[in-house]
Design a protein around this nucleic acid. Structure first.
Lengths: 165, 165
DNA sequence: ATTGCTGCAAACGATTTGCATGAGG
DNA sequence: CCTCATGCAAATCGTTTGCAGCAAT
């Protein structure tokens, strides 16, 4: 799936990887789980991308580093990463769970093209303010929100006018 | 699943049902499909609620009117309703597709409790403005958006403080 | 008559689970 | 050592599809 980049954040630094690993390790200790090579490998692969990965895609990436790591472990680890705040699920409307990293990321949102599936990220602090405000109004302790816009991107519109239905 | 109502719209009138049925029938004619008793029954059941129905829940409701109507038909009809704008899918984060009616509804959004699954609806015109604005900025022809807030509702917080983890 | 519709059962794809084996604390 | 992690295969969940008979146009 394509991915247009609006912001150009540099690829993740050694420091950040270490810090994220620490977060994971602390989380594991806290809930009485074990630190394993597989979990670290998966975390590292995950951090090395900026895409909205499906479990399948991440599994493929992980396999390049260690072909013995199975599907199931990737699923389970992704859940762990979500638990400790390193990853979060983004539901595009294609029936597949996708994850992105949440570590050191400004709150951002997605606009998805319903024809080609490409997406842009955008930032909109107003939305976080809204979250606060609505939460207060209805007495919810809010934790997060999702905001997605669906539409048709410029390229697809061009294609459509060239080859009309 | 629970459903707290913030706005109190009266239950749907005969008029509205008729109008919605017309919309469906016109849509069917337009795309060369047929008008059937099942489709009308399903539409009527759908309109009679204000909840965010899963296909399963709608199927159960429909069966009270006509026990012979099957699962598959409900799925297929719900898709038709979505096509002609009478229904729209709302993705809470529980892995089930839910639908709500869209006919004669102001643009609204959901706040979902991650503990008990109950939800409130709220209205926020700012969000639609944002959709326009972001779409213009990145040259997308936007069609719709989703905005959901997740958090813990007052009741669940009370329960938690009574019976701490 | 022709074409689409229905309900069933089987297929499907994504995710989860049971289990025997292997590795971390 | 004891407990949890792993990988595999099988199970499960929601959803979709193929098909034979039925109904709307």
């Amino acid at each position: 799936m394509l991915q247009k980049r609006i912001d150009d954040q540099p690829s993740i630094s050694r420091e950040m990887v270490r810090e994220a690993q620490d977060i994971l390790h602390r989380h594991l200790k806290r809930v009485g789980l074990k630190q394993t090579a597989q979990r670290d490998t998966i975390l590292r692969s995950f951090l090395e991308t900026r895409d909205h990965l499906s479990t399948d895609e991440l599994h493929r990436l992980v396999q390049k580093k260690d072909a013995s790591i199975g599907y199931t472990t990737v699923y389970r680890t992704l859940k762990l990463l979500a638990e400790c705040g390193l990853a979060s699920e983004v539901a595009f409307h294609d029936g597949i769970a996708r994850y992105e990293h949440q570590y050191n990321r400004r709150s951002h949102h997605h606009m998805v093209c319903t024809e080609c599936g490409s997406s842009v990220e955008f930032f909109s602090p107003e939305v976080s303010q809204l979250e606060q405000e609505i939460g207060r109004r209805y007495h919810y302790a809010t934790t997060r929100h999702t905001f997605q816009i669906y539409g048709v991107c410029e390229d697809c519109r061009k294609k459509n006018s060239t080859r009309p239905a």
